[in-house]
Design a protein around this nucleic acid. Structure first.
Lengths: 283, 283
DNA sequence: CAACACCGTGAATCGACAA
DNA sequence: GTTGTCGATTCACGGTGTT
């Protein structure tokens, strides 16, 4: 990891010392390499959407004989559960070092990986505050009729340790957003599609698993305050960064795939309408 | 484990050899002791609602009897998780031996234990088919307003191995029960209360976590056929047995606490209206 | 222009059996 | 183990085109 190669338009008088080179940047790097560069206890909130290790065995055909466009990307391939566990513990450990004692971590996953992630974070000393289910309005059906429709994903929300104090939970905002009743652990959102889904000129999706902005917005609105720093170690096409920007939070976005980084930068520059400093590439 | 001490009213001409002493019985025993008595590959469906009280697991299983610090000590957490994992792997292994190759296992839990259970069963070779969330119609609010309302629990449905064939999924029944559309992985049920909740003369709950009958009925209806055998290694007050009985499935119910066993027997005798053989106590 | 029909698609661990 | 055959199998939403 070298320093970013493009300088910002304006100097930032940051209340976040040591983060300046990466603050409000999308950095193209392996997340472990970048996390090594960040100071201890510098991050308020982490949202992580790691590879799910789907282990797809064959092509899936719909009843109308069309082929499902599966997530078969190289970055989602792991040799074994043991290899996935090692990867998981590595990034969770690195995140724990940079997380403030008052900070919290969110991870999203499916049954393929979430149990392993949950056990690993408990083993590392994180303390679970809630698990939350994203109930999908419009999931893909089970075409063969051999299982239940996979209609949800799971998020885990945890603090740094059982004894950690001072984490942010904007209880009243959540209650207000839920019609005056306490926000529950089941969240209903549609899949990311329509105009929100990023596509190339041919209409192909830019990212196989782009998350809905509304989902991440709720995470940021619930568990951070304006001016705090949100880290996304698997930033993809930058949905977390966009949500942070709109909510007035700083962000540090890390993504290994240059194509995703380019899409995220384009999205953020459109979002900020030229008012934001330029966003930087790492190496 | 001795043989049951009370004989049945009628001989059972069972298509389930080796299970006769425990078939359609509530056995008062530690589940590991009873599982040792069951033949290999004799069970079609297992529903397990294991304890997740870490303090309980610690006092029961921790090998040494050293005095531990308060439960907010990190080392203590590790010890506690390790003890719980050991307990989990033991009963999951025993269940896997008695499960038919075509059988499936369900486990229910909350964020306190479900990640550990899920990782353990994957490590043991079970293959997850679905995770299912029980979305609670009427959850207990979070009185202190420091977290989201804990409004769901998680069930994991798995088969014996990735290559196991022939598991039961009554797709059309589930579809019909869902108004003609595929049954999804999010199930909406109220908590067990009202007339369904078992209480003593003082109105106190007989069991702290009695599950709603509708939830377990859906599990049995989805994943077993009439005449098959359902095992519940943590039977509590016998909800699984009642559900199996009503659906025409045989059951083997194991529960360590005599008070719960007594409640389950009373419930089943009322349920069967004298038509069932007497239910047996183990030791 | 409104209403309707049609089509594409989404983190998916998606057969059983005989030769 | 591999291959070929037979058979059973989809929901919600958004975009486009037609009536």
């Amino acid at each position: 990891m070298s320093q970013p190669s493009r300088s910002r338009v304006q100097p930032v008088h940051s209340p976040h010392p040591g983060l300046a080179p990466w603050l409000d940047r999308v950095v193209c790097a392996d997340c472990l390499e970048l996390l090594e560069q960040l100071p201890d206890e510098s991050i308020d909130l982490i949202f992580a959407d790691p590879p799910y290790n789907l282990q797809l065995a064959q092509t899936l055909i719909r009843p109308d004989s069309s082929v499902v466009d599966a997530c078969d990307d190289e970055w989602d391939q792991f040799e074994s559960f043991a290899a996935y566990d090692q990867f998981t513990r590595a990034w969770l450990s690195a995140c724990r070092r940079v997380l403030k004692d008052s900070g919290t971590l969110w991870v999203i996953g499916s049954y393929h990986n979430i149990f392993r992630v949950g056990a690993a974070l408990q083993d590392l000393g994180y303390w679970v505050l809630n698990d939350v289910v994203w109930v999908k309005a419009n999931p893909m059906p089970n075409f063969r009729g051999v299982r239940f429709t996979n209609a949800h994903e799971t998020l885990i929300w945890c603090k740094k340790s059982a004894t950690a104090k001072g984490y942010v939970f904007n209880y009243h905002d959540m209650k207000a957003a839920n019609g005056g009743k306490q926000m529950r652990s089941d969240w209903y959102f549609p899949l990311c599609n329509g105009g929100e889904r990023l596509r190339d000129e041919d209409g192909a999706k830019l990212h196989p698993t782009q998350k809905p902005l509304g989902l991440i917005d709720r995470v940021i609105a619930a568990a951070s305050r304006p001016g705090q720093v949100v880290l996304d170690p698997f930033a993809g096409v930058g949905t977390t960064a966009v949500a942070a920007l709109r909510r007035g939070r700083h962000f540090v976005a890390v993504e290994r795939e240059p194509g995703y980084v380019a899409a995220a930068l384009q999205r953020l520059e459109a979002e900020s309408d030229g008012q934001l400093p330029l966003f930087a590439y790492g190496t």
